[in-house]
C-alpha cells in the first residue's frame, strides 16, 4: 500500500463541496438572489442616490438581514443531507478526522458566500464613481460582513448537524440568528433599557451580531469584535464536532 498524505483531506472535501454547489441550481439561485436583494435594499430601500453620501453604510446595514434568510438556506443541507442519504457514514469512515470533515465543509461554504459578497463590488464602484468615499469604512465593512457571514454559517452548520430534517435546520438557525441579531438592535435595546438594569442590557447586547458589526461598518476594526466573531464560529463548530461524534442512532 502506498503511503497516504493526510494533510489534504480538508482540500479534497472542500473541492467536492464547492463542485456540489455549482452542480446544482443552489449556487446560482443563491448568488442571484443575494445580489438582487443587496442591490434592491441599497438603491431602492436605502435610497443610495438620494442620500447624497458617498459611503456604503446603506449597503452594509442590510447584510445581517439578507444573511439571516439566505445563509440558513445554504447551511441547512451541509450535514442533514449527508445524514439522510447515508453518505455521512461514507464520509466519516474515510481516513479523516471529524474535525477535517467539518473544516472542509465550513471553508467551502464560507468561500462560496464570500464569492457572493465579492460580487457586490459594483456598489463600491458606483460609490467611487459618484464621489470620493473614505475607503476605510468600506474595507472594514467588508471584513465585518465576511466575519458576520461566517458566524451565521457556523450557527447553521450546528443546526444542520443536530437534525436530518433540512426544514428544521433552516428554522432553528434562522431563529438563533434572529436572536443574535435583535439582541443588539437599537429598538430592542431601547425597550430593554426601560425594563431591565443597564448592565443586563449591555451584556445581552454584547452577545449580538449587530453591536459588533456596526463597529466595523464605521471603519473601526477592534480586536474585540474579531475575537467575538471568531469565538461564535469556534463555539458553534465545536458544538458541531461534539454532535457528530455523539451519533448513536442510525
Amino acid at each position: 500500500m502506498e503511503e497516504s498524505h493526510n494533510e489534504l483531506p480538508v482540500c479534497t472535501i472542500l473541492k467536492r463541496e464547492w463542485r456540489a454547489y455549482f452542480n446544482s441550481p443552489v449556487a446560482y439561485v443563491f448568488i442571484v438572489i443575494f445580489l438582487a436583494l443587496a442591490g434592491f435594499f441599497t438603491f431602492n430601500v436605502g435610497r443610495f442616490y438620494e442620500a447624497g453620501q458617498a459611503s456604503l453604510d446603506r449597503s452594509f446595514f442590510w447584510h445581517p438581514w439578507i444573511y439571516l434568510i439566505l445563509i440558513p438556506a445554504v447551511s441547512m443541507r451541509l450535514w442533514a443531507e449527508e445524514r439522510r442519504t447515508g453518505t455521512l457514514e461514507l464520509l466519516l469512515t474515510f481516513p479523516v478526522t471529524t474535525a477535517q470533515a467539518i473544516a472542509g465543509k465550513f471553508i467551502a461554504a464560507w468561500l462560496f458566500i464570500l464569492l457572493a459578497l465579492v460580487l457586490t463590488f459594483p456598489v463600491v464602484l458606483t460609490a467611487f464613481y459618484l464621489g470620493s468615499p473614505d475607503p476605510g469604512p468600506i474595507i472594514a465593512g467588508y471584513i465585518g460582513s465576511a466575519l458576520l457571514a461566517g458566524a451565521y454559517l457556523a450557527v447553521g452548520m450546528f443546526t444542520s448537524a443536530i437534525t436530518r430534517n433540512q426544514v428544521i435546520s433552516f428554522i432553528l438557525s434562522a431563529v438563533i440568528g434572529l436572536f443574535l441579531l435583535l439582541a443588539g438592535y437599537p429598538p430592542v435595546t431601547d425597550f430593554l433599557y426601560g425594563v431591565a438594569p443597564s448592565w443586563v442590557v449591555e451584556t445581552v447586547a454584547g452577545f449580538s451580531f449587530s453591536t459588533h458589526f456596526e463597529q466595523m461598518q464605521r471603519g473601526i476594526i477592534d480586536l474585540r469584535d474579531i475575537v467575538y466573531f471568531a469565538s461564535v464560529m469556534g463555539f458553534m463548530l465545536l458544538a458541531t464536532h461534539v454532535t457528530l461524534n455523539n451519533r448513536r442512532t442510525k
Binding site: R16, R19, A20, N23, S24, T85, G86, T87, E89, L90, T93
Partner: peptide, 13 residues
C-alpha cells in the same frame, strides 16, 4: 474498505 448499508454515494457526481 467499507461498503455501508444501501450503498450511499453522492448522486450529483
Amino acid at each position: 474498505g467499507y461498503l455501508p448499508e444501501n450503498a450511499p454515494s453522492y448522486g450529483d457526481m
